[in-house]
């Protein structure tokens, strides 16, 4: 265990764990747009930057992304230093210029006092903030169905060749974890469409309720050694089945006793 100082308070931390983890554990609010615990930090949004210094640095300080900076003994961290706040407002201002219509961006920017961008707004822009959460989750789950394509201002998230990705199983993790709810999908009539790919959902053999796609169920069964029969019923019907089984046993017990 090591000790670091965050906003004047000495706290314990594990050597090498990322500053953001410690900051969040201390319930200090530091905004992030590209952070997700399921994936490796990437340092893309730059909102989690903090000011760091050490007594032996002679008053010199540095600005680092807390999601990627390992905690070290004696480090002094300021999560809301004047320069840090200015940096965050400036970055949110840039975001606001690029995605003026995104409610999530507008709200976060407003929290840092940016109600209107001072820069030229991008007209006809979309709400994809290129945080890479979707692509990193897809990679971590082992599908690699979508990735960042292109570079600079024209960068976008897309499947290979912009065609329905063969590797996608329709788990929807990309869409559900998008911080700006930008990734669209359509679920109706027992089917799902995402990234221009159509999927069939597994319908519960009892009640018809759908939970995941057939492709996802087959993938899990094949790669994670799960009996495919487990996927035939929905959670509710499974619970009823369990109650029925346990009920029968208890009833035998009851009859045997009486």
């Amino acid at each position: 265990m090591i000790h670091i100082t965050i906003n004047g308070k000495v706290v314990q931390a594990k050597d090498g764990e990322m500053l953001l983890t410690v900051i969040r554990r201390e319930k200090i609010d530091v905004p992030t747009l590209c952070h997700h615990e399921a994936v490796e930090p990437s340092g893309a949004c730059r909102l989690c930057m903090v000011e760091i210094t050490k007594p032996e640095w002679d008053g010199w300080c540095d600005y680092v992304t807390s999601c990627l900076y390992p905690a070290a003994d004696g480090l002094i961290v300021n999560t809301h230093a004047k320069k840090v706040n200015e940096l965050r407002s400036s970055i949110l201002d840039m975001y606001l210029a690029r995605h003026p219509k995104s409610p999530e961006i507008r709200q976060l920017a407003a929290e840092y006092g940016v109600l209107k961008t001072q820069f030229e707004e991008v007209v006809d822009g979309d709400n994809c903030i290129l945080c890479g959460i979707c692509t990193r989750i897809c990679d971590t789950m082992g599908f690699h169905a979508i990735s960042m394509v292109g570079r600079g201002h024209g960068k976008e998230v897309a499947p290979p060749l912009n065609m329905a990705p063969t590797a996608c199983v329709g788990c929807l993790s990309c869409a559900k974890n998008c911080p700006t709810n930008y990734i669209e999908y359509n679920m109706e009539n027992g089917g799902l469409t995402i990234w221009k790919k159509d999927f069939e959902m597994v319908a519960c053999t009892e009640c018809g309720k759908t939970t995941i796609t057939k492709e996802f169920a087959e993938y899990l069964s094949k790669n994670r050694d799960i009996n495919i029969d487990y996927f035939r019923k929905c959670d509710e019907c499974h619970r009823k089945e369990l109650a029925g089984t346990m009920g029968r046993i208890s009833n035998w017990d009851r009859e045997a006793r009486s």
């Binding site: 615990e37 788990c171 974890n177 959670d235 509710e236």
Partner: peptide
């Protein structure tokens, strides 16, 4: 761990007793 969970519904579908909801 809700921080890590990506809401993919795999566990909900896979549990044979319907106990992930």
């Amino acid at each position: 761990n809700h921080e890590v969970c990506v809401n993919c519904m795999a566990c909900v579908a896979a549990c044979p007793f319907g106990c992930a909801v």
